[in-house]
Computed example of a mutant assay.
Amino acid sequence: MELRTKYSGALLIVVSVLGLPMSALAQSNTPSVSELFNAVDKNHDGYIDGEEDKAANRARFVKFDTNGDGQFSRAEMLAANRKFGQSETLAQQVAQLYLTRMDTNHDDAASWEEFEMWSKKNMFDPMDMDHDGKISRKEFIMQASPSVP
């Protein structure tokens, strides 16, 4: 279950960076895990390093900060969640969960710094299984595999 949770979060990040609707995940033209990895591995060296991860996170943050004020607000989170097809109840619950974890200064929004710190701690670091500061294709795919214990 823990790996599926990590994978779901990673997939959400990559899909949102690529601008794909979550409904695309259920369609036959869904990008493969390898294609998702390649979208973030900009220099195509077979690793997602900290800078590539940060750039992908920054692109996602800018996309979701629809009013451009440098904050990913509760309203913007709700709008993003609805865009991914979540019901109103689920959108509210997810926004609350993420804000509770991201919003370290308790202003009901996540700044870029808060968002990046949360993303590194909860997405990049757990996927970097050998702790070498980069995510290999193997680490990324292992996280994506539902058969990994």
Rank of each mutant, 00 (worst) to 15 (best):
residue 55 A to P: 00
residue 46 G to R: 03
residue 54 K to Q: 08
residue 22 M to K: 14
residue 58 R to P: 00
residue 23 S to G: 03
residue 43 N to K: 05
residue 43 N to T: 14
residue 21 P to I: 08
residue 29 N to A: 13
residue 52 E to H: 02
residue 37 F to A: 01
residue 40 V to D: 11
residue 61 F to W: 05
residue 36 L to A: 11
residue 21 P to K: 06
residue 51 E to W: 05
residue 60 R to D: 04
residue 18 L to Y: 07
residue 21 P to L: 03
residue 22 M to P: 07
residue 39 A to Q: 13
residue 54 K to Y: 00
residue 26 A to F: 09
residue 16 S to M: 07
residue 55 A to T: 02
residue 33 V to D: 03
residue 35 E to Y: 08
residue 27 Q to G: 02
residue 51 E to T: 10
residue 57 N to S: 08
residue 53 D to E: 12
residue 39 A to N: 14
residue 19 G to P: 10
residue 16 S to A: 11
residue 32 S to P: 02
residue 19 G to E: 15
residue 39 A to T: 04
residue 42 K to M: 11
residue 26 A to I: 15
residue 31 P to D: 15
residue 42 K to H: 10
residue 60 R to M: 06
residue 57 N to R: 07
residue 42 K to D: 12
residue 42 K to E: 08
residue 29 N to Q: 15
residue 44 H to N: 15
residue 25 L to W: 04
residue 61 F to Y: 13
residue 41 D to I: 05
residue 24 A to K: 05
residue 50 G to L: 14
residue 16 S to F: 02
residue 43 N to M: 10
residue 45 D to A: 01
residue 24 A to S: 06
residue 58 R to H: 02
residue 32 S to A: 02
residue 55 A to F: 03
residue 41 D to Q: 02
residue 47 Y to V: 09
residue 41 D to H: 01
residue 26 A to S: 15
residue 57 N to D: 06
residue 61 F to I: 08
residue 56 A to K: 12
residue 37 F to Q: 05
residue 25 L to N: 05
residue 53 D to K: 12
residue 55 A to D: 13
residue 37 F to R: 02
residue 33 V to G: 12
residue 40 V to E: 13
residue 48 I to E: 11
residue 34 S to V: 06
residue 58 R to Q: 03
residue 41 D to C: 10
residue 45 D to V: 01
residue 32 S to Q: 04
residue 55 A to Y: 05
residue 18 L to D: 10
residue 50 G to D: 09
residue 44 H to E: 14
residue 18 L to P: 04
residue 37 F to E: 01
residue 20 L to F: 01
residue 20 L to A: 10
residue 43 N to W: 04
residue 61 F to H: 04
residue 55 A to K: 04
residue 21 P to Q: 00
residue 41 D to A: 02
residue 59 A to Q: 03
residue 18 L to Q: 10
residue 60 R to E: 02
residue 58 R to C: 13
residue 51 E to R: 13
residue 24 A to D: 07
residue 26 A to G: 15
residue 32 S to G: 06
residue 27 Q to M: 09
residue 25 L to F: 01
residue 38 N to M: 15
residue 20 L to P: 00
residue 35 E to G: 03
residue 27 Q to P: 01
residue 36 L to T: 03
residue 48 I to V: 10
residue 33 V to A: 05
residue 43 N to Y: 00
residue 53 D to V: 12
residue 26 A to C: 14
residue 57 N to L: 08
residue 30 T to A: 05
residue 61 F to N: 06
residue 59 A to T: 13
residue 54 K to V: 00
residue 32 S to D: 03
residue 38 N to R: 15
residue 53 D to P: 08
residue 53 D to Y: 10
residue 25 L to Q: 09
residue 26 A to M: 14
residue 62 V to Q: 07
residue 20 L to Y: 01
residue 61 F to A: 00
